[in-house]
């Protein structure tokens, strides 16, 4: 069962458009939502939560339409934003009073336990909290009403590695429960590589890539070759190319085939960040790119184009 099912969502702001966005998040998974700043991650999250109206398409959460049952469905959704959103004069106790009168399933014991665990003083104004403490406070709120879905928008950005790691540990604990799902938006791909099961990659308001993280990492590789060797590579295998230290680096979409076809060439493991950067490179060099899923990769950059662009870049 898919906990989130977005179908053909379009939202046009004039200067930015969420263009026919479709993807699904399976129950019990951690879905990493990646993309550079301004790619449309926050807009998509707002569309999922029905916090903005969409021009077309529909959003199903727990199999129900958010437009119709949004208020009820949000009882089971915990949300963490990159900015806190609570008034600076509020203390943990104030937030508890407010939230227990909003959420039916609010558990103040769980909330204060989280505050204790995160070393957050319940009587201190949250305006005096550090960024890490503010994020932890939001997580405590999100986890204290029995949410089955956690949606987080850049929760780890601007945090030091220790706090980030601590937060990733909390997310891991959260998804131990089979019916708990996380949609985690971030441009810090390293965090997602550690925790995500699924990856959705958005750029310029369009879904560029989505699928199982391990499949994507397994399929993609960085082929390193000399400039004149680029023309030898099958065009269907090339995602995009860019200049490397000693020649050209090419992101290929079928590592195994490449190894068989070009045994003399070096093919390295691609990270999520590499995949993201090469796909963005491909998008920004105005090459046609349709939605590409992890299991069904199609429409590669032509060999001539890749060769030409690599030469230009070099």
């Amino acid at each position: 069962m898919n906990v989130i099912d977005i179908k053909n969502v379009t939202k046009d702001y004039g200067d930015f458009k969420l263009d026919n966005v479709s993807f699904a998040v399976p129950e019990g998974s951690v879905c990493g939502f990646i993309g550079q700043n301004g790619a449309g991650k926050t807009t998509t999250i707002k569309a999922i939560l029905d916090a903005i109206g969409v021009d077309s398409g529909n959003v199903l959460v727990f199999g129900e339409d958010m437009k119709i049952n949004g208020a009820r469905l949000r009882e089971d959704i915990g949300v963490v934003f990159d900015e806190m959103g609570f008034h600076e004069f509020m203390t943990g106790k104030d937030i508890n009073i407010m939230m227990k009168n909003i959420y039916k399933n609010w558990d103040e014991k769980v909330f204060f336990d989280y505050l204790k665990r995160f070393s957050l003083p319940s009587k201190k104004k949250c305006g005096d909290f550090s960024r890490g403490m503010r994020m932890k406070l939001q997580i405590a709120v999100a986890l204290s009403h029995g949410a089955k879905l956690l949606i987080m928008d850049e929760p780890t950005s601007g945090l030091d590695p220790i706090v980030r790691n601590e937060m990733l540990q909390i997310f891991r604990e959260y998804v131990i429960e089979e019916d708990h799902t996380i949609l985690l938006s971030s441009h810090i791909t390293g965090d997602l590589e550690k925790i995500a099961d699924e990856v959705v990659f958005i750029d310029g308001g369009k879904i560029v890539l989505n699928g199982n993280k391990d499949d994507l990492l397994e399929k993609h590789g960085i082929l390193k070759c000399k400039k004149d060797e680029l023309s030898l590579i099958s065009e269907s295998l090339i995602v995009s190319a860019q200049p490397g230290v000693y020649g050209v680096e090419v992101l290929v979409n079928d590592k195994k085939s490449c190894k068989k076809l070009y045994p003399e060439m070096i093919i390295e493991q691609a990270s999520l960040e590499d995949i993201m950067l090469f796909y963005i490179n491909r998008m920004h060099t105005n090459v046609a790119c349709s939605n590409i899923s992890g299991s069904d990769i199609s429409e590669g950059m032509s060999r001539e184009q890749a060769s030409k662009e690599a030469e230009e870049a070099l």
Binding site: A51, L73, R74, E83, G85, F86, H87, I102, Y103
Partner: peptide, 18 residues
Amino acid sequence: REDGKAGFSSVAAVLPVT
């Protein structure tokens, strides 16, 4: 004014209220 300063509208938008 205070809600705007805190960015509370983003919190309110995801609460289980219409």
